[in-house]
């Protein structure tokens, strides 16, 4: 891939804090290398803003290698930008050409309030996990890893669900701001394994109760979440969560 430089126009959402009314600001960035990542491009702009004595654009990021789930950004109408199964930190500027205008917005959902500019508060996801996305293990000697036989297909499906990095793109894309794809991944990864079996019912019930309490919408199976998920989490997990939940709801005391 040949290297080139480009000048770009950015329309970026700026908002001082959760209460403030935000608006779009337009910026020009010059000489951006096609080898840069999208976040590095914003770093360049922020350096300039700081040099001019202005407030840099706040955005979330951590690992910058597509595994932590901290980066977000709704870029030109798509969470994590134009590439398939990709995080914003792994989006590279070769996706753009000289003179392009890029609109950058934060995740939009009542359950994800904007903290500042492009940063949103995703602690609702943490509370859903805290409600049941774990297994309880008593202390003592570690159990032999091979003591519990696990069917290969199930282990694979569980692992695929465990790939969810909790970024929230599914919520950002969903017309109902539903967190079902995330929650279904977190339920599935445990429900398919024998270690997850003892708390199976309470897990599904408590995580959904928390999800509803956080103000996410109900799933209508449109599939937008699956299409934007950087980790390819499958919609099938949502149907599995429905089964887990309904089974528990109809039989639990």
């Amino acid at each position: 891939m040949e290297h080139y430089n480009m000048n770009l126009n950015l329309k970026v959402w700026r908002q001082r804090n959760t209460q403030a009314k935000g608006s779009f600001e337009t910026y020009q960035v010059k000489n951006i290398s096609s080898e840069m990542s999208f976040l590095e491009m914003i770093d360049v702009l922020n350096e300039e803003l700081i040099a001019e004595g202005k407030d840099p654009i706040a955005f979330d990021h951590d690992c910058r290698e597509g595994i932590c789930g901290m980066c977000s950004l709704y870029i030109d109408g798509r969470p994590h930008g134009p590439w398939e199964q990709n995080t914003t930190c792994q989006l590279h500027m070769r996706a753009y050409k000289d003179g392009d205008t890029i609109t950058i917005e934060p995740w939009r959902a009542g359950a994800f309030p904007v903290l500042k500019d492009l940063m949103v508060d995703r602690s609702a996801f943490d509370r859903i996990i805290q409600a049941g996305g774990f297994i309880s293990v008593n202390t003592g000697n570690a159990v032999d890893a091979n003591a519990l036989p696990i069917e290969k297909d199930k282990a694979d499906a569980s692992f695929a669900a465990a790939a969810c990095i909790g970024c929230g793109a599914c919520v950002a894309a969903c017309k109902n701001s539903s967190a079902m794809l995330f929650t279904s991944a977190k339920v599935t990864q445990l429900a398919l394994l024998p270690q997850g079996a003892p708390e199976r019912k309470s897990r599904a019930l408590n995580m959904i109760a928390q999800m509803d309490k956080e103000g996410f919408g109900a799933c209508t199976n449109t599939g937008a979440c699956e299409a934007v998920c950087p980790k390819g989490i499958s919609l099938t997990n949502i149907a599995r969560l429905n089964q887990e939940y309904l089974g528990a709801a109809l039989t639990a005391n």
């Binding site: 329309k11 779009f24 709704y74 030109d76 109408g77 798509r78 609109t103 917005e105 939009r108 959902a109 009542g110 359950a111 894309a173 017309k175 109902n176 701001s177 539903s178 103000g215 996410f216 919408g217 109900a218 209508t220 199976n221 449109t222 599939g223 937008a224 979440c225 699956e226 299409a227 934007v228």
Partner: peptide
């Protein structure tokens, strides 16, 4: 209820990507 979960919408809509219009 589902509509009320996003009070501030997007400037650029997600339109069409990944979901059929009739599902929405």
């Amino acid at each position: 209820s589902n509509r009320s979960k996003r009070t501030q919408g997007y400037a650029v809509p997600l339109a069409g990507r990944g979901s059929k219009w009739y599902s929405r």
